[in-house]
Amino acid sequence: MVSIHNLGFGYSKKKPVFEGLNLELQAGNVYGLLGRNGAGKSSLLRNIAGLLTPTSGQCTVNGHTPHLRQPKFLQELFFLPEELHIPPISMKEFVSVYAVFYPNFSQNQLTEYLKEFEVDSSARLTELSLGQKKKALISFALATNTPLLIMDEPTNGLDIPSKSQFRKIIASSITNERVILISTHQVRDLESLIDPIIIMDNREVLLNAGTDVIAEKLSFKTVQQVTNHEKVLYSEHSIRGFGIVIPNEDESYTKVDLELLFNAALEKPQVIKQLFN
């Protein structure tokens, strides 16, 4: 659905945010985009959404060129930025104004999500807490049923029960026609939800793979001692010993530990790239 070839982008010519970036997103998936601060996650999301114009290469979404921002493209996209714009009206009024722009909007879904999130839809949005605001807009975003839904750090500001509700709602709203792309730092919040995983660093995509492919190629273990050093891609000390990432050689599938995977990718970017390309 989203297809990016050789994409280059930079706010100034001397300092490109990314160069020659390639990425394909297939419908029916909840993609998790990981990367350290300043790795260009937000810039990538904004390029896909058409808020920024690529300096080179192509980016297409369902055949549309995002940066032209034509209504037919915008109807197929909902972008939930990290910093939300909240008009001083109630959720009911908000829906009465904005829902008409989205042809597949479903009032039933919205009601259901708002109920699950326990958001008061008659209160003024500006008077809600940050978490409530976020939940109101997440509910609306999901109810628009756009083929592409991009969320930048959606779990920031959500309390613990809300994070669980968020996972339930996302799990229920993904369909075969839809791509949900979530950028996050809070991998623990979404660990069992996001799949495939995209890791960005140093102006490029290091990895874009489903957790089954990752588990096939890499093992994530806790060991008392790190023995075969040359094979271990990454290890870190924890209370229970060492968390390690090593190539999977015995065909047993371990649970993909996103934090370990992310750290391994940053430490051995070339190895990770070779393994997954």
Partner: peptide
């Protein structure tokens, strides 16, 4: 002229 609102308004499905 305010970044969050510009984002949301630019992406509202209507032409410039």
């Amino acid at each position: 002229s305010h970044t969050p609102s510009t984002m949301s308004y630019l992406l509202l499905p209507a032409s410039h």
